[in-house]
Amino acid sequence: MQDDAFIELDGVEKVFDVRKKTGFLKRERRQVRAVDSISFTVARGEMVGYIGPNGAGKSTTIKMLTGILTPSAGRLRVAGIDPSRERKRLAHRIGVVFGQRTTLWWDLPLIDSYKLMHRMYRIPDGRYRENLERLVELLDLGPLLDVPVRQLSLGQRMRGDIAAALLHDPEVLYLDEPTIGLDVISKAKVREFLREVNAERGTTVLLTTHDLQDVEQLCSRVMVIDHGRLMYDGPLAGLHEVGESERTLVVDLERELPPIEAAPARVVKVEGPRQWLAFPAGESAAVLVARIAAEYPLVDLSVREPDIEAVIAKMYGEQAEKAQRAVS
């Protein structure tokens, strides 16, 4: 474990008892391992993406990190605090944004929520004024302060929520699907703001998302979780190798020709003189290009990186296949 680890998980598990209806009155009880022995550390000031499909265990992890849920097993520390034991003490040091529900008071004007946070978090007056002013400016909240939260659009509300989560200068910010349902412009605003907070304040950010663009644009490190297990933890680029993904070479030839033969690359699509070749991401594109250029009349070419969506989908696919094989 690193010395400067700010968030530490060691073998953390969360098991739920799920009761499922199987008949009119019959119920079946079974245990669901929502989080299965996860270990990782996050250093102070890091910005980490935590991704995976629905029901993979992302939200459960966040809930354990905030102290909402108690882990079934394992050790968990945030800023040296055990969240489930000292939930209220931890609350002063963390900020949480749930994308799908607001932490603001629904029926009251936005500013009322902030005033209440000011007192509830015991933020010194000067600090509160300073933070509020800065957040209002950066997140463009000025005209919204007197509007009841329920009348805000999703994007406006999300900005309001992010400001609320940062008023008390938290050391770590958890964002659970912060861009879900937002339009392109709102997404861009939120992302830009998060980058600034991380750079200026050194706030540690842990972000769960469906939207891989969030991760591509914000995070240098990404963790992938599926079926409660940590599948990958490392730089974004490395995800490609793990996923054994493929890059695509698009070549424009002088004229229409039969599919190019250049193993290990294979042609996946032909459209007139243009051909698409898929090749393993680990292979050198330069070697391949040189070989093709030597044998075919090349006009132009470009290399396309795989999008992570595809990479992860492939990763999941392989996992599922393995699981299938294990069962049968």
Binding site: T66, I68, R87, R89, I94, V96, F98, R101, T102, T103
Partner: peptide
């Protein structure tokens, strides 16, 4: 799910 938001506040 809004019950969760109460649990992240220091009160």
């Amino acid at each position: 799910g809004s019950f969760d938001t109460l649990l992240v506040r220091p009160a």
